[in-house]
Design a binder for these strands. Structure first.
Lengths: 154, 154
DNA sequence: CCTCCGTGGTTGAGCGTTCAACTACATGGT
DNA sequence: ACCATGTAGTTGAACGCTCAACCACGGAGG
């Protein structure tokens, strides 16, 4: 068990705190949303994506991309949200394989009801605990991770 | 939909990148571990906790705490890992309600086999993309989030 | 001793995610 | 026109997590 580039003591500390911190953020959000709106965070984000799209409508694959989700997952999710009346499916005339997901009125108000509590939870668990400088740093760190290569930061 | 402390443009950008970045890290690790070892990341961490404990043994509740997990989840997890032969359960003589989880030899070698690839994945997705300064910043940010209150950082 | 409550841990149902098929349609080449 | 290949989306089974209920034991008070 000693033939690889192990983490230094410091790196290991950061890594464990990273897991603890991101775990805490996720758990907090998940519990808050589930408790107050009966929605998993992933489904909440689907509603957000649709609410921001023109005509509150998106292709399934667009929706999957924006939620960084697989097509399969989105299929299941939309099925569930449809049966809850928050989304409707519509076929695509120009490409008969395609399908649109449309946010219903009920879906929009569910989102509007859920949003304030959600934003509040995000503030409490993240932004209220960080200095403005740390928020900026976190933004750059996340950009670097997303891009998957070193970013030029101070 | 306008009666709460909404996020500023900048905060929203950071928040979305935060979700994308942490999602990416999680997905990457989950896939790598599942592919190369057939273990979910959560189960891998259980093995790590046990491997670091004296006699490679821990009480169920200790194990749950260290993995920031519920007792129920740990019960299911240990059941699964036991049936895979990586862990054994032992009763506690002094408190007949209690139960110990013990890492087996097979469990230890499964961990030893999985560790290098895992560490490598952690490096690739996180530490290789950040400057040393950013790593330090990330550590402090995570500490602040864990503590749930502002930390005094530069 | 007995009762009451708190604790350690397990169980089962319900749900979301994953993975590997699978259907249906589009598109390019011959 | 035909076939191959690729793309859009769905489906079902397996699995992990959550939640509420539950069992078994320990400890304190009467």
């Amino acid at each position: 068990m000693n033939d690889a580039r192990w983490l230094s003591e410091h790196e290991q500390g950061v890594w464990r705190r990273f897991l603890a911190a991101t775990g805490r953020v996720n758990d907090e959000l998940e519990r808050q949303l589930q408790r107050d709106s009966g929605l998993p965070h992933a489904y909440y984000e689907v509603l957000v994506s649709l609410s921001e799209a023109p005509d509150r409508t998106l292709r399934m694959s667009e929706l999957a991309e924006r939620s960084r989700s697989s097509r399969s997952r989105m299929s299941h999710a939309v099925a569930r949200l449809e049966q809850a009346g928050l989304i409707e499916r519509k076929g695509c005339p120009s490409d008969k394989r395609g399908a649109f997901a449309v946010l219903t009125e009920k879906g929009y108000s569910a989102l509007a009801d859920a949003a304030p509590g959600h934003v509040n939870a995000v503030r409490e668990v993240l932004f209220d605990t960080l200095t403005p400088n740390q928020v900026r740093q976190l933004g750059e760190i996340c950009s670097a991770i997303i891009d998957g290569r070193p970013a030029d930061a101070e």
